[in-house]
Amino acid sequence: MPGTQQQFLVLLVYLLIWDSPGVFGSYRRSSSRCTSIPKSMALCYDIGYTEMRLPNLLDHETMAEAIQQSASWLPLLARECHPDARIFLCSLFAPICLDRLIYPCRNLCEAVRSSCAPVMACYGYPWPEILNCNKFPEDHELCISSITDESTSSRRMPRASCRDCELEEPSSAKEIMENLCISDFAVKIRISRKNKTSTIADFDLDSKLEVLKHGPLLKTETHTKLQQWLDLDATCVHNIMRGTNAGVYLISGEMQNDKVVVVNKAYAWHKKNRILQTAVRRWKHYKCKA
């Protein structure tokens, strides 16, 4: 179990211990209901608890609405902008089923906003007013606080930037091969747009793949994981394709928690691109630095 999730479970136990009437006000059971978090709610399924309240803290009345609205945040999580982003979002989309509503603390909101808002701005989306951090309780109150210590964390935040998911223009074959060395996987794929009138959604992956490097990406799941990437990170795919309806690309990236594909580099495949052709030809015999 990842360290962040372990810390989150400890926090939940703390909240359960302090869940007594009269403290911070009670929550009316009659105004809401407890329901299981379904697998189709990918954002919050397996978050550390199994039941949530509806309506949630974003006033979504039905599970269908909560699932639909929460799915729009999956691409941001794929960009790994902050380790606590999922905890923050799920505290709102799928609040834990206690006798009262437990809001995220203001410091958690501010930490996630400071790292994720710049990434959202890269794609033209402002931090939404519905997530205004001033609306959330102070850190000394009963609330879900920030788990990650950013001053000691070894993870760079945010990992994504405005240059992520842009076609690369390599200066040498060695540059490409060194990038492949530090990547978990590298695959040559053909992407096409299902709906040519769509702007950033509905992309399809050709069945033929040329895998240069598998890494943790198993052969049996390569196509499925890459199609999942097309579905979850459509904005990234749109940036790579630059308005074309179909194209062949050499992509590389990492596996996030051995589950989600995150593409970091992409090169447009052209037969006349001698640098790319040379890199792929030499890659089979290239020895990466230890």
Rank of each mutant, 00 (worst) to 15 (best):
P2F: 13
G3R: 15
T4N: 15
Q7W: 07
F8W: 10
L9D: 07
V10H: 07
V10M: 05
L11P: 00
L15Q: 13
L15G: 02
W18H: 10
G22R: 09
V23A: 14
F24G: 07
S26N: 15
R29T: 12
S30K: 05
S31V: 13
R33D: 01
C34H: 09
S36N: 13
P38E: 05
K39N: 11
S40V: 13
S40W: 01
M41K: 01
G48L: 08
M52G: 06
P55T: 06
L57F: 05
D59F: 08
H60L: 02
E65A: 14
E65L: 10
A66R: 02
Q68F: 13
Q69I: 02
A71Q: 11
L76W: 02
L77K: 02
E80N: 01
H82M: 04
H82K: 04
P83H: 04
F88N: 06
L89E: 09
S91N: 07
L92T: 05
P95K: 10
C97T: 04
C97W: 05
C97G: 06
L98M: 13
L98P: 00
R100S: 11
A111E: 13
V112F: 01
V112H: 01
S114N: 13
C116E: 01
A117V: 02
A117C: 04
P118L: 06
Y123D: 14
G124N: 08
Y125K: 14
Y125Q: 15
P126D: 15
E129H: 06
C133E: 06
E138V: 03
E138G: 05
E138R: 09
D139S: 15
E141Y: 11
I144K: 04
S146R: 14
S146Y: 02
T148A: 08
S151G: 01
S154C: 09
M157P: 01
M157Y: 03
P158W: 02
C162P: 10
R163P: 00
C165Q: 08
E169F: 10
E169P: 00
E175P: 00
E175Q: 13
I176N: 00
C181A: 08
S183C: 06
S183E: 03
D184Y: 00
F185P: 03
A186Q: 05
I191V: 15
I191Y: 05
R193F: 07
K196Y: 11
K196Q: 10
K196A: 10
T199L: 14
A201F: 07
K208Y: 09
L209Y: 05
E210R: 10
V211D: 03
K213C: 06
G215W: 06
P216A: 00
L217G: 01
L217H: 04
K219E: 13
E221P: 00
T224K: 14
Q227G: 11
Q228A: 11
W229T: 03
L230H: 04
D231S: 12
T235N: 11
H238A: 12
N239I: 00
M241H: 04
M241I: 03
R242C: 03
G243E: 12
Y249L: 03
Y249I: 03
I251M: 04
G253K: 01
E254S: 14
M255C: 02
A266N: 09
A266T: 05
W269F: 09
H270S: 15
K272T: 15
I275D: 08
L276F: 09
A279V: 07
V280F: 00
V280L: 09
V280S: 07
R282Q: 15
W283K: 02
Y286S: 08
Y286W: 15
A290R: 14
